[in-house]
Nucleic acid binder design. Structure first.
Length: 492
RNA sequence: GAGCCGGUAGCUCAGCGGUAGAGCAACGGACUUUUAAUCCGUGGGUCGAGGGUUCAAAUCCCUCCCGGCUCACCA
């Protein structure tokens, strides 16, 4: 702590004075409260003139000589308190040792002031903890606030300040928590079992991404941090857990942007005996239920676009969507040469490592996605970018895979899962060839997983949802950092 | 990785070659129902870091650090 900071010095001196008076706030362990701050407001009729005991942080003080008003804040809200000098005796002078940000417990009776504000008339108080560093609480009047914490860097690095000072940030981040919690509740009610699978993996698979690598001393070997949940959840499906899901952190060693954080949260689920259409229905139900429970509505607006999650999602075949928005047809992607030409025709830069499927997905991202504002399932993904999905029976270049889009952004990815171990082996071999050709993000060849599948995997539908992006879309966040409490930052 | 913008008091910002400013917060004083309380007064800064140009740099130039946005990369 920088000793020279005058504001800190003054607060430390106040702490010292409190200690000399035998009122060390940091010696306090508990404080008995009867009500939360919003409960006092809500139950005013019953509580008027009754004694209550409440606690919170001091967020405003107005001392007017022999009378003082202050506001306390807790998780639930704010409440005004009132102190009178002639009732407090010499204890009244202790108010001078309070600062914004300190924690205060008070006991007193509830009344309404002349101007109508519900207030606790304090008879006893205890300073419960001191903020020795200033907390810049803003001035407030109604919904207006002055001098908020604007500095974006500080809001991310010192999120506790952002949460205290910016109600919008607080609501957005708490909404994310509730989305996760309601997703659990929904899936549990649907009969899914929640599990936990390894984060440290010998070989991170299940997605196309570069992993973080770490080292285990005792085993003297490297491990990778997982990039997806898929392959271990499928092992559990093989193990007889017919409806299984996990909500967990995955790690991808890639760039940071407004839509990418190196660690983010995925929900993946697998349901035996279910196919792609069953999963589409599940996604519709899940998004609708979460919206209703977290936000109390199914309509959302972003950048002027309105959507309603109570309505069924549109279902469009990928190649039809591409044709609709670019005029390119399936024949235009028949061979790699034609696919490259077609992509360049619509202004897409193709890399050497791109496969036909990779090019098709680029066309989807660059030319089609922005048009998928309304809830939409795009299905029929190319085989070479979907090595874990079943083939379409009459169109073997494509798979039984869909992505769900909201506001032009992908929020869900699902397949009828490939359960043929012979074909899975072939698919891994194709990925291996891509890797040999220089594609660092090709799926790894996971022999242990193949052996598991050879023991028999049921037909199943699977789903992955990026929780962070889902939270962004439902809360209208522009950056993924606004829905992650502690986003990744460079060393400051 | 590239381009643009930014970093000045605890917070929000102004100043953009001539001795560092405002509001809020803090400190002292007045004030017994205030609520952006009010009124009077006071203190507070390595102007992101380092180098350069200049009689003189927060200000101009260079390098670096941190952040934001856009693009690239990436589910």
């Amino acid at each position: 702590m920088e000793e020279e900071n005058q504001l800190v010095q003054i607060r430390l001196q106040k702490l010292q004075q409190l200690r000399e008076l035998g009122l060390d706030p940091f010696a306090i362990e508990r404080y008995e409260t009867t009500h939360t701050l919003d409960a006092v407001q809500e139950q005013f009729e019953a509580l008027e003139n009754q004694t209550v005991s409440v606690a919170g942080r001091i967020v405003a003080i107005r001392k007017m000589g022999k009378a003082t008003f202050a506001h306390l804040m807790d998780t639930t809200g704010k409440l005004q308190i009132y102190l009178k000098a002639d009732e407090m005796g010499e204890r009244y002078d202790l108010i001078d040792l309070w600062d914004l940000g300190d924690y205060l417990g008070v006991k007193g009776f509830v009344f309404r002031t002349r101007t109508g504000e519900i207030t606790v008339h304090v008879q006893e108080f205890t300073l419960l903890a001191k903020a020795v560093r200033p907390v810049p609480f803003p001035k407030e009047k109604g919904d207006q606030r002055w001098y908020e914490l604007h500095d974006v860097e500080q809001r991310y690095r010192q999120r506790y300040l952002d949460l205290l000072l910016n109600p919008d940030s607080r609501q957005r981040l708490l909404a994310r928590c509730r989305i996760v919690s309601e997703m659990r509740r929904f899936l549990d009610a649907e009969g899914f079992i929640e599990v936990e699978t390894p984060v440290l993996q010998p070989m991170a698979g299940g997605a196309a991404a570069r992993p973080f690598v770490t080292y285990h001393n005792a085993l003297d070997r490297e491990f990778q941090l997982r990039i997806a949940l898929e392959l271990y959840l499928k092992r559990l499906l093989i193990g007889g857990i017919d409806k299984v899901y996990e909500i967990g952190r995955v790690f991808r060693n890639e760039g940071i942007s407004t839509r990418h954080n190196p660690e983010f949260t995925m929900m993946e689920l697998y349901q035996a005996y279910a196919n792609l259409e069953d999963i589409m229905d599940l996604v519709e139900r899940m998004f609708r239920t979460i919206a209703e429970r977290v936000f109390g509505r199914t309509t959302f607006e972003l950048h002027g676009v309105q959507i309603d999650l109570a309505k069924p999602w549109e279902r469009i075949r990928l190649m039809d969507a591409i044709q609709q928005h670019t005029g390119l047809t399936e024949a235009d992607f028949e061979t790699l040469e034609r696919a490259v030409l077609s992509a360049e025709k619509v202004g897409i830069h193709v890399e050497r490592k791109d496969t036909i499927g990779g090019i098709i997905e680029k066309v989807l991202e660059k030319c089609v996605a922005e048009h998928l504002q309304q809830p939409t399932f795009i299905y029929g993904f190319p085989i070479d970018t979907s090595p874990l999905a079943k083939r379409e029976p009459n169109n073997p270049r494509f798979t039984r895979r869909f992505e769900g889009y909201l506001f032009g952004k992908e929020v869900a990815n699902a397949f009828s899962e490939l359960n043929d171990p012979l074909e899975q082996r072939d698919r891994f071999e194709q990925q291996y060839a891509l890797r040999q050709a220089g594609d660092e993000e090709a799926h790894p060849y996971d022999e242990d997983f193949l052996i598991a599948m050879e023991h028999g995997m049921p037909p199943a539908g699977g789903l992955g949802v990026g929780i962070d992006r889902m939270a962004m879309l439902l809360t209208g966040a522009e950056s993924i950092r606004d829905v992650i409490f502690f986003p990744q930052m460079r060393e400051g």
